[in-house]
Amino acid sequence: MNTTQIQEIIFSALTMTNHTREDNNQIPIAPITELYSKNGYLDSMGLVAFLIDVEELFLDEDIKISLSDDRAMSQTKSPFRSVETLTQYIVELLQE
C-alpha cells in the first residue's frame, strides 16, 4: 500500500468523524490537517474513535495495524499530530 492509499484511508476516517460534528465544526480533509496537537481538531475521545475507524478500514483491506498501543503512545513525537505524521507512522508500521 502506498502513501496516497494510506492517506485516502485516513481521509475516509476523517469523513466518518465529521458525521459526529456540527456543520460549523467540520475537520478539513487535507494532509496538513492537525489532529491531536495544541491546535488539533480532536480531543482524546475523538482521537480514540478516529483511530479505531482507521484500524477498521485497514482491516477491511486485510491489514491488521494497531495504532492505540504503547508503541504509538511512547513515541518522542506523537504520530497523531497531523494527517501527515500519522501517514508517515503507518508507512513505517507497514514496512516492518
Binding site: 466518518m16 458525521h19 459526529t20 460534528r21 456540527e22 480531543d43 475521545m45 480514540v48 474513535a49 479505531i52
Partner: peptide, 24 residues
C-alpha cells in the same frame, strides 16, 4: 457497515454527549 456507521453518528450527534456515542 460504513453507511450504517455514518447514519448512526449523524443521528447521535445532537442526542448524546460525544463520550456516550459508540466508538466501535
Amino acid at each position: 457497515k460504513r453507511d450504517f456507521k455514518a447514519k448512526t453518528f449523524t443521528f447521535c450527534k445532537d442526542k448524546l454527549a460525544s463520550y456516550k456515542i459508540p466508538t466501535k
